[in-house]
Write a protein that binds this DNA or RNA. Structure first.
Lengths: 125, 125
DNA sequence: CATCTAGATTGATGTTCGTCGATGTAGTTA
DNA sequence: TAACTACATCGACGAACATCAATCTAGATG
């Protein structure tokens, strides 16, 4: 089975007409991607920050503050994890640009970065 | 430093007025989350499917087909990975509900599930 | 100065993940 | 039937991750 058999098969099996498409483009083994390697790595890193239940709940808690800031001292209770673990997860959220960190005196305050979430939403649209 | 000192400190340091807010709500150590544990686990699983550069490029390639289907046989070249690795990643995308799988004859065809991506977008908004 | 406190960092441990060669399986071809 | 093909699964390996006790650091307090 050669290249054009492959094309014909795809047409028959997909049960669609391809008259308006270039028969070469329809089966080209290499197609130019929307995402290049570098973009994919950056985006994957952002989504990885969201790929943990604890971080999602921490983020949700901060988001629920409605633009106000949330004290780090409350987050251990919210997440049910130890202080070092919460600190670790918050660092990941801050590094991903999803949350801003501000230390004032002994306490650390976090607030959402809505533009960063908007950017991720745009990627999914 | 007691509970109310904590409140006063937060007010002073945040340099914001809190007249319109309940002083107890402002510093409540436990606040009801938007996401409960179960929701967070489910969502984290979906985002984890997007948290890999290879999977993002595979998804992007399928999305670039504009609603049409893409043959699995093209994806090894697109991703630059071995056939078992691609199969592994596509299973994760299918299990996450982001992609539909259809085997016809010897070939497997994938297509995007836009509603699933929309659902994730809604979570970020 | 010494003491106390909130949070970051370190180090160690068990788990999960990405990867691919080898093999299995369903479907096609001759 | 036997040979071939496209994809899935298995098994193993190294890398990355989540977790927390112990420790460090910066800032406040006395």
């Amino acid at each position: 089975m050669d290249f054009f058999d492959h094309c014909r098969y795809s047409v028959a099996m997909a049960n669609r007409t391809l008259q308006t498409l270039d028969p070469i483009a329809c089966c080209a083994p290499v197609r130019s991607d929307v995402l290049d390697e570098a973009q994919a790595v950056l985006l994957a890193n952002s989504f990885a920050a969201l790929a943990d239940p604890i971080r999602l709940r921490l983020l949700s808690h901060i988001a629920a503050a409605g633009g106000a800031e949330v004290c780090a001292c409350d987050l251990t209770v919210v997440s049910g994890r130890s202080q070092p673990t919460v600190s670790h997860h918050m660092k990941i959220l801050v590094d991903a640009g999803l949350v801003d960190r501000d230390k004032r005196g002994l306490w650390v305050w976090y607030r959402l970065v809505p533009s960063r979430l908007d950017a991720l939403r745009a990627v999914l649209g």
